[in-house]
Design a protein around this nucleic acid. Structure first.
Length: 553
RNA sequence: GCCCUCGUAGGUCAAUGGACAGACCGUCGGCCUCCGGAGCCGAAGAUUGCGGGUUCGAAUCCCGCCGAGGGCGCCA
């Protein structure tokens, strides 16, 4: 990874110069005018030592840098930036490396010997998956893929909230459509799926038996819903989980009660007003949260206590890092979970990502989505309309904290000119060129041994610079969880490939050497695009025709 | 009322406190005797919601206001 190499060189130069900053930032430039990477250490140091102008520090550090003409050239500017340009010979060698590493290219070691858990979707088993679930689902899946690529041992988990009031409500809702009217029908779940669910339940069991026990009907309903609705949907969306953990099971196995004891032993618990409270500390009562409710005889634990038990369980399972992706409707809940994490000492191992909800629009007008009113678009409907690749790419393309609007009409109209096709087309084009080359009698077997030093055109070198950044992207995402960097990166790469294609003839029977070098570059591009698309869970067609059938509109 | 998040070209979004804020869609104008035109080249389009502050440097950090979304003590 070139960024790392530059960092190390700069770091060494700084140590030799007597500066403290051991791991200086080295960033890719946004403008090629300034080379390929740059560092602002000189500017940063100027803050500490105002007597030394940045330019002078930059000049001094550049002079200290070991001469590595075969890897990079360093320069400084009057305003104090240190700029690096990567040498063509280094770039040319990258093409061979990418081909040799193939599927493995992009792998980094940051997560070696570390276990990480990603918990995502965890949609309540009271209805089909929503667009918001899709956003969190695709992001969580892509994040898990990236963490794996960063050498973490990754586990994907779905937490099932299969207990509590919502289950009772589900039970009432099912009974209601079966003709057993609930007293208070206001909060009931509505929609086609409740009717379907009721039919399924009726078929498999004697509902009469449950007539007076809505909670049991709801419990069974949740099981069926998970099995018949949610899990098939996940399969269709190509999201795999390693584990489904049941909240109910946490209760049954005594883990919830055990968690309360842990808190009690640490002196974090207080009985007050008939309830049991978690003491947030700081001597302020208004941040305390209820662990065991008072209104049901002081015996019913809250979701909060169950969640503490759940997280304790996670860490008992030996994860070095736990990442929770929660919908924005849980944002207010983060603070109390964090407080519990601090009190129990796993704060530094827990990361909570809030994924903003998706606002649905129809022809520019907002449509309220609600399981209770039954007006919502399910993830499956969306995928049926625009295709899985488009849906995945679209949801991953937005940073988790941006509020996104989703207009099904627009999505359908735009699905054919979706940026995902731009990337897939570049991949198919690579495949096509390679096929053509074989027809023309070129052997693709040992492209990694072709003379890539013939790749000297600006468009060729620019493309290589993009290709070799994949490991940096993977490393960054494994640290900052910004999976939306992936679509952006793949688009930039595809863009540079298309530009290269337009101005450089790859297959030229009259110039075998250049042809082979360019074929190597095409092969390397194909590998990078394929690896990136895989990380996003998006298909990488050999021919664009392979995608037809993907869209059903 | 309080808390969290967001506000960037006409639209959808990028941009790790760094250099002249980048793409795509849309609009306008070009490019196929040749490896896939689902492509390429060019043009127009931005006072980064508004006002202050911190900094050598702010879309990014802090304060206030406006607008949007979400949440609010014992629902999950």
């Amino acid at each position: 990874m070139i960024r790392k190499v530059l960092r190390e060189h700069l770091s060494k130069a700084m140590r030799e110069a007597g500066y403290e900053e051991v791991r200086p930032e080295v960033l890719p430039t946004t403008n090629t005018r300034f080379g390929d990477y740059y560092s602002t250490v000189a500017l940063r140091l100027a803050r500490r030592d105002s007597k030394q102008p940045p330019e002078k520090t930059a000049k001094f550090l550049v002079a200290k840098l070991a001469k590595k003409e075969e890897i990079f050239k360093a320069d400084f500017t009057p305003n104090g930036f240190i700029n690096f340009s990567i040498s063509p010979s280094f770039l040319q060698a990258q093409v061979q490396e990418i081909i040799e590493e193939d599927e493995n290219f992009g792998r980094v070691e940051v997560g070696k010997d570390k276990k990480v858990q990603v918990e995502f979707i965890s949609a309540n088993p009271t209805g089909p998956l929503t667009l918001g679930n899709g956003r969190g689902g695709f992001m969580g899946d892509a994040l898990a893929n990236c963490l794996e690529k960063a050498s973490f041992q990754v586990e994907r988990e779905y937490y099932i909230n299969d207990t509590g009031n919502q289950i009772k409500t589900l039970g009432f809702s099912i009974l209601d459509v079966l003709g057993i009217k609930a007293e208070d029908r206001k909060g009931l779940y509505k929609g086609e799926y409740i009717v379907e669910l009721a039919k399924l339940l009726q078929k498999e069991t004697d509902i009469e038996r449950y007539r007076l026990k809505p909670y049991d009907v709801g419990g069974r309903g949740a099981e069926v819903l998970l099995k018949e609705f949610i899990k098939p949907a996940l399969a269709k969306l190509k999201i795999d989980f390693d584990a489904f953990v049941s909240e109910k099971h946490l209760y049954e196995s005594g883990k919830v009660a055990a968690a309360l004891e842990v808190l009690r032993k640490k002196g974090l618990v207080e009985e007050r007003e008939g309830a049991t409270w978690f003491k947030a500390g700081g001597g302020v009562e208004d941040k305390d949260r209820v662990l065991v409710r008072s209104d049901v005889g002081g015996s019913e634990p809250t979701y909060f206590l169950a969640d503490i038990a759940y997280h304790l369980d996670k860490f008992e399972r030996g994860f070095d890092r736990v990442i929770d992706l929660w919908g924005a409707d849980h944002a207010g809940y983060v603070q109390r979970m964090r407080a519990a994490a601090v009190a129990l000492g796993f704060d530094d191992k827990l990361d909570i990502i809030i994924v903003q909800l998706v606002r649905l629009k129809e022809g520019g007008k907002e449509v309220r989505m609600s399981k209770r009113t039954g007006t919502f678009v399910t993830l499956e409907e969306l995928v049926d309309k625009v295709g899985l690749d488009v849906a995945r790419f679209f949801f991953i393309s937005h940073a988790a904290n941006t509020h996104m609007d989703f207009d099904l009409k627009v999505a359908r109209e735009q699905s054919l000119k979706n940026p995902v096709y731009y990337v897939q087309y570049a991949h198919a084009r690579c495949a096509s060129i390679l096929r053509k080359a074989q027809e023309e009698g070129f052997s693709l077997e040992d492209l990694s041994n072709s003379d890539t030093s013939l790749l000297k055109q600006p468009a060729e070198l620019a493309l290589i610079k993009a290709l070799m950044k994949l490991p940096e992207i993977v490393e960054d995402i494994s640290q900052n969880y910004a999976v939306h960097l992936l679509p952006t990166y793949s688009q930039i790469t595809a863009d540079l490939f298309h530009k290269f294609y337009e101005q450089a003839r790859v297959i030229d029977p009259k110039d075998k050497g250049t042809s082979l070098a360019r074929l190597a570059l095409v092969m390397a591009t194909k590998i990078i695009l394929r690896n990136s698309l895989r990380l996003m869970g998006v298909s990488h067609p050999e021919r664009m025709e392979d995608l037809s059938g993907e869209i059903n509109n």
